[in-house]
Amino acid sequence: MRHVTVNAFGGPEQLVVKSMTEPLRPGLGQLLVEVEASGVNYMDVYQRNGMGNRPLPYTPGLEGVGRVREVGEGIDDASGALSIGRRVAWINVPGSYADQVIVPAAQAIPVPDSFATAQALLFQAITAQYLVSEYRTVRPGDRVLVHAAAGGVGGLLVQWLKHLGAWVVGTTSNDAKAATVRALGADAVINYGRDYAFLDELKSLTDRRGVDLAFDSVGAATFAASLEGLARGGTVVLSGSASGRPPAIDPMDLINPCTRVAGGSLFSYVADPAELQRRAGAVVDAIRAGWLRMGDGTAYDLERVADAHRAIEGRGTQGKLYLRP
């Protein structure tokens, strides 16, 4: 079995492909899965840099899709959805950069054979599902700002919000990404380039009223302006910090504009297996219905894992990146 190992925190060069001869065997309540694809997420970069408190050495990756190769004892699977040969996805199984993974049956999400590889990698889509459902009941006409709107989560947020009838403005870092966001259905796009300046244009687009909801995964470079760009009673949700930790906020500054600050973590919203399956089911239904469109993504052979990390760090990517073991 091949897997990626990180022996020291640092840059992409720390990602090394190794082989092991001892076979994996599933234990009680576990599945052995032959990996079709391992998702590459920005969280993997944080952990590689040492921000995830992972003990060294470790195999990175949390997400993947593959087929069940062996079923451990103690699994109640009356439907046969987890039987040998069936296709399953997962979003929180450490060590997924490998060609075989042990997946707890409670975290295995059945996915249709008809889904393309990128469609079956569900980390970003389930993230979008919890973001649009937990902080505001989005109604037609609500004004929503989505940062990094050409990224994996951002592009899905745009589609989900438009499905709910919202007016959506997305931010991007270049014209090519802006075209992608428009094609996803955004009503307006702000190309903030490398300096992240978007507030003046946002106020102009909203007749200085601001937005009812803002999703900020960028952090330090954008969060203060995202807060200032809210309408009365609006909410900004911090869901990431790609540019660094955002500055501290004085709660007194929220009183007069009547604005709210929230934060969210996908893992908090899928810790319960039943909730994970419910949220994943909503995503699978949306993909089947055709209104949630997943791009083809960009595939890298496992040996090119360092290149995949350089790509996602360089802000030049669109859509899903994944490894092909």
Rank of each mutant, 00 (worst) to 15 (best):
A274V: 14
S133L: 11
R324C: 09
L122V: 09
G316F: 00
V40K: 06
T180A: 09
R278E: 08
L205I: 10
A306V: 05
S114F: 09
R208P: 02
S217T: 13
G151V: 14
G244Q: 15
Y42F: 15
L157E: 08
A105W: 12
E70C: 05
D253T: 12
G244A: 10
T298D: 00
I75M: 06
I109P: 00
V189H: 02
G295K: 15
P273K: 10
K18C: 11
Y58S: 02
N92T: 07
L202R: 03
A150K: 13
S239V: 00
T59C: 09
L292H: 07
E228M: 14
A176Y: 03
G263L: 10
L122R: 13
D250W: 05
M252Y: 01
S79T: 08
A186Q: 11
L31C: 05
V68H: 07
A225S: 12
I75D: 06
Q129A: 15
Y130Q: 11
A116M: 15
V169A: 03
R86H: 12
L131I: 03
N174L: 10
G193W: 08
L213M: 11
R245F: 03
V45L: 04
V68R: 08
A221I: 03
R48A: 13
G85V: 07
G263E: 02
V132E: 04
R324K: 13
P140T: 14
D195T: 12
R208I: 02
A125S: 14
G52T: 04
G29V: 13
V169F: 05
V132G: 05
S79M: 05
G27I: 02
G85A: 00
S19M: 14
A179W: 00
G151H: 05
P94W: 03
A262D: 05
D212M: 10
L323R: 09
K320A: 09
Q124F: 03
R245I: 15
Q124N: 14
G240R: 13
A118Y: 03
